[in-house]
Design a protein around this nucleic acid. Structure first.
Length: 586
RNA sequence: GCGCUCGUAGCUCAGCUGGAUAGAGCAUCGGCCUUCUAAGCCGAGGGUCGUAGGUUCGAGUCCUACCGAGCGCGCCA
């Protein structure tokens, strides 16, 4: 519908240019047409005349007049009006609105698809939480967003590759391994003060328990041997970092390379399995789980490229990347004085690898606390002679958790946190996914757990699902009485039968769906879909209350049933896009 | 101090990339079930869009400066 209006304006514009009434320069102008908010202004409106004012050298209303006169007649357009400061308002022919019903029915689950992405290869990396503990509710938002975005991109013609970057190397993982081992020693009868900076969650005990079952006393060492000459922990007046690092080193030396790796993997694999299982239950699967450890051999080669390009230098015994050349606040260390690579060095190698894999576009979904990394990662890409513009980093603000009035402190280390699994168990997958994705990512979000848990009744997701279930229920009733659902009829019949204003509104809404999808995909904003669905469900509920669908008159009934079928289809398509089920019965 | 993300109804949030009189949902108040699911519908009240300037035909949207919130500014990950 919108397209006919655009075509007509384009034609008028071109004609005026060839007639010499408008300068050549305006030919490249993109024509803006929008749906009117107020139907007194017609169905669609364009601001074209006002944009042209300056270059045409005429007042806007006069430009509008010229455009209107140049327009050839179009069967889809019933009336054109000039209004306000110079808007051109289009009134479409009635029959046009109802064509969408059969279009939706014909395309079914494919309705809304587009070729916006033109087969572009897009990588979406999301969640990528450290495998040092179960996912918590903060990760849930990135998970729901990343997955919905991926579905959206796939639907709009992108070749999507979903990836989880597993931080299975580094200090935190070593602390986890040490924590597992220490709990194992406790289970084996030793007693000591657990390090304040160790991982204290109960899941660690479970891993240690399983380890004990498997290896029995193979890794046993007495507590006095473990803690001999270890610097004091913070509660004892020492430094907690030094304390835990010393324990990690002691763990390594006492267990030997093989034993240490066994304990390390016990922790890593158990937690990774748990995360994978958690996400799968949440409706999220990945194409690839990319191991940071596997990157080790390639870190040096990435740094070599930087070095060859002249962007590395030595200072204070460390190797630095001159990221300030590319707009970063300060230069960054890539190889520490002790010879170890920094986390950033891995990140350079990872992004180097991503780009070498040939993606046209790379989307990183990060927690908002990582925003400071964007300049340095982009700097690294540029320094590697790669196109940093292909990298898009979306920051997801953390949800601030409340339990009633009190704020919930979240720390993976202390073990006092709400897991994603707990949230899913309490509010359900549908509510959780919908809730997470219903606001835009940059927006802070207050999340009252008590409210969310008790909210099941008020949660907007039910409102939409209910609309879907209602239609299903109605159709079941018709199946019973008629034995079948009506087939397609001539669009002209819809125009004759569907005279209620609400019916036209619903059709206009259905017709807008593909555009909503494209805008949402283009802006990486799946939240637009949830708002669209709420609106569609709303007008349908309202219609349902004012008009009976299953009326005696067969022609009218058929038209209304087909309209309902189309609405159901779009609701289902939209819900599926955000990973929410569309139930037949509620 | 510098940087990033924000500031819209009592609360939680939209606002279609600059358009016509700023919208929903909760919450509050008043109505609607002998009729396809009341998990629903209809109506009412509620706003200096953080503040002040600027850009233009036109600003919640763009630019600048302040105010306020959250986060970041390690040879941590």
């Amino acid at each position: 519908m919108k397209q006919s209006v655009e075509e007509r304006l384009r034609q008028a514009l071109d004609d005026l240019i060839s007639a010499g009434k408008l300068p050549e320069s305006v030919a490249s102008l993109t024509i803006q047409v929008e749906e009117t908010r107020d139907k007194q202004h017609g169905d669609f409106a364009s601001n074209l005349a006002m944009i042209l004012t300056k270059q045409a050298g005429m007042p806007p209303r006069q430009v509008a007049q010229a455009l209107t006169e140049a327009m050839k007649p179009d069967p889809a357009i019933e009336k054109v009006e000039i209004a306000g400061p110079g808007f051109i308002n289009f009134f479409l022919s009635n029959a046009r609105f109802f064509e969408v019903i059969e279009e939706v029915m014909q395309k079914g689950t494919h309705y809304g698809e587009s070729n916006l992405g033109q087969g572009q290869r897009v990588q979406v990396e999301f969640v990528s939480a450290n495998p040092t503990g179960p996912l918590h509710v903060g990760h849930g938002r990135g998970a729901a967003y990343g997955d919905s975005l991926s579905r959206l991109l796939k639907l709009t013609g992108h070749d999507v590759h979903k990836e989880y970057y597993v931080n299975d190397a580094g200090r935190q993982m070593n602390i986890l391994a040490a924590s597992v081992w220490l709990r194992y020693l406790e289970l084996s009868g030793e007693s000591f003060t657990f390090p304040s900076n160790g991982y204290k969650g109960t899941y660690v005990n479970e891993i240690s328990e399983a380890l004990k079952q498997r290896v029995n006393r193979k890794y046993f060492v007495t507590a006095s041997d473990v803690f001999r000459d270890i610097p004091a922990d913070e509660p004892a007046g020492g430094d907690k970092e030094a304390h835990i690092d010393a324990l990690v080193n002691r763990c390594r030396s006492l267990l030997g390379p093989e034993g240490y790796l066994d304990v390390f993997d016990a922790g890593l694999n158990s937690i990774l399995d748990d995360i994978r299982d958690d996400l799968e239950s949440f409706g999220i699967t990945y194409h690839e789980w990319f191991s940071e450890k596997s990157l080790a051999p390639r870190i040096q080669s990435a740094l070599t490229v930087l070095k060859d390009n002249g962007h590395l230098y030595e200072q204070d015994g460390a190797t630095w990347f001159r990221s300030t050349t590319f707009g970063d606040d300060k230069d960054r260390v890539v190889i520490r004085e002790n010879g170890e690579f920094t986390y950033f060095a891995s990140d350079i190698a990872y992004h180097h690898d991503k780009f070498q894999r040939g993606f046209d576009r790379v989307i990183n979904i990060w927690g908002a606390d990582h925003h400071g990394y964007i300049p340095r990662v982009k700097a690294a890409l540029t320094a590697l002679n790669l196109d940093a513009a292909k990298l898009d980093v979306k920051l997801v603000q953390f949800a601030i958790l409340y339990r009633g009035e009190t704020r919930v402190q979240m720390s993976t280390r202390s073990g006092s946190f709400v897991t994603l699994r707990e949230l899913r168990d309490e509010v359900g997958n549908d509510a959780a996914r919908f809730f997470y994705v219903t606001r835009k990512t940059e927006q802070h979000m207050d999340f009252d757990l008590d409210l969310a848990k008790s909210e099941s009744k008020d949660n907007p997701v039910y409102y939409i699902q209910y609309a879907h279930a209602r239609i299903c229920s109605m159709l079941r009733k018709l199946q019973e009485s008629e034995g079948r659902l009506p087939d397609a009829v001539d669009p002209a019949s819809y125009a004759r039968q569907l005279t209620d204003e609400a019916e036209k509104t619903i059709c206009a809404m259905l017709a807008r769906y593909p555009e909503v999808i494209n805008t949402a995909a283009g802006n990486l904003e799946p939240h637009q879909i949830t708002h669209y669905l709420k609106e569609l469900a709303g007008i349908f509920h309202s219609y349902y209350n004012s008009q009976k669908v299953l009326v005696e008159d067969a022609s009218l009934r058929t038209a209304r049933v087909r309209l309902s079928l189309a609405t159901r289809q779009v609701l289902a398509n939209g819900l599926n896009l955000i990973g929410v089920t569309a139930p037949d019965v509620m």
